[in-house]
């Protein structure tokens, strides 16, 4: 087995704010292999974005500070690099698509300029060559009339087209790793499907590894090979997509499955601990939680869960979960599914 392309190792990112320390990332470990698609799922605020942005060192500091951990890209710890070295990786080896297509493009620069900029920067192209390549990129991401669009400004494009432009921009320099942070959440359903199709197609062509952040398990099933489930700044489960859907081992994952209509309802329907819509709210990340962070919302919780924190353990080859009751969860799921 070759070493993974990216390894996030026990990353702890805390925000030191006026009203306390926010433990946004609290010991997260995951990796992506070259060419692989890894999905990261979890509710809003669980730290998916800040973990991913840490890879590009985009988290503002202050208030953010890395308390521990490493982010190794091709063996090098990115947290040790100086900014000049970091900038050589950004947009060239690792690029990122953001959650908000409407605001992530610069309103006063043409689309062509914004795509071309990366090429000028990282590949030393001149403006003209970069512009020509930008037209090609626009064609690649399926934007009609690329010669005209390349001279347009973001406000002249629809949300779906802007996200296509973001993808074109991210892939312009053939990165080894593409981080897509909820690339379709802000788009309407038909456009979502188109963008996902596009990403799949481009992935097979470019061969980049993808970290796909989403809170939609439907997207995971369609796009990814492996999944990391995050809850309150931690990884609570990790498995191949097939394993996760066949045998989820964390109650939170089970809950998430309940919240996707087609997949979930048929699977956990009538399951005794009814988790269908996950009750309760995400815990505050400001206080140290003594036991399992999910305990207040968990139908499987025992007295132990309030006292002791479950460590993440490999329960089957490649299948990790952080839950004392993992086997009971899996058994119950299997029973409900049959």
């Amino acid at each position: 087995m070759t070493a993974p392309l990216l390894e996030i190792d026990d990353l702890r990112l805390h925000f030191y704010t006026r009203d306390g320390v926010v433990r946004a990332v609290d010991g997260v470990t995951y990796h992506v292999k070259a060419g692989e698609t890894l999905a990261v799922v979890g509710e809003s605020g669980c730290g998916k974005s800040v973990t991913a942005q840490s890879v590009l060192r985009l988290v503002p500091s202050p208030p953010g500070r890395y308390v521990s951990g490493q982010i190794r890209f091709q063996g090098r710890n990115l947290l040790d690099l100086d900014m000049a070295e970091m900038r050589k990786l950004r947009g060239a080896e690792i690029s990122m698509i953001f959650q908000e297509p409407m605001t992530s493009l610069n309103p006063v620069l043409t689309v062509g300029r914004q795509i071309g900029e990366t090429l000028v920067l990282h590949q030393g192209m001149d403006q003209k060559a970069a512009e020509a390549r930008a037209v090609e990129m626009l064609k690649l991401v399926g934007i009609p009339e690329p010669e005209r669009r390349v001279r347009e400004y973001p406000h002249q494009l629809s949300g779906g087209m802007r996200q296509r432009v973001m993808i074109a921009m991210a892939l312009a320099c053939n990165p080894k790793l593409l981080i897509a942070d909820e690339p379709t959440t802000a788009l309407d359903v038909t456009i979502q499907a188109q963008i996902l199709d596009l990403m799949r197609e481009l992935k097979s062509r470019v061969g980049a590894a993808i970290i796909l952040i989403t809170h939609d398990l439907g997207v995971v099933a369609e796009m990814a090979e492996r999944v990391v489930v995050m809850y309150a700044g931690r990884k609570v489960e990790e498995a191949s997509v097939d394993d996760l859907f066949a045998r989820p081992r964390h109650p939170y994952t089970l809950g998430l499955m309940g919240s996707i209509p087609h997949l979930g309802s048929s699977l956990v329907h009538n399951a005794p601990p009814r988790l269908a819509e996950i009750q309760g709210v995400v815990p505050s990340l400001r206080e140290e939680i003594p036991g399992c962070a999910f305990a207040p919302r968990c139908g499987f919780a025992t007295e132990r869960c309030g006292r002791e924190r479950p460590e993440i353990e490999e329960l089957a080859p490649g299948h990790f979960a952080a839950c004392f009751e993992a086997e009971r969860v899996a058994a119950q799921f299997a029973e409900a599914a049959s």
């Binding site: 590009l56 900038r87 947009g91 690029s95 610069n106 900029e117 973001m166 921009m169």
Partner: peptide, 9 residues
């Protein structure tokens, strides 16, 4: 879009 610009390097 400033974060985007930073992300480009």
């Amino acid at each position: 879009y400033i974060r985007t610009a930073d992300a480009k390097g």
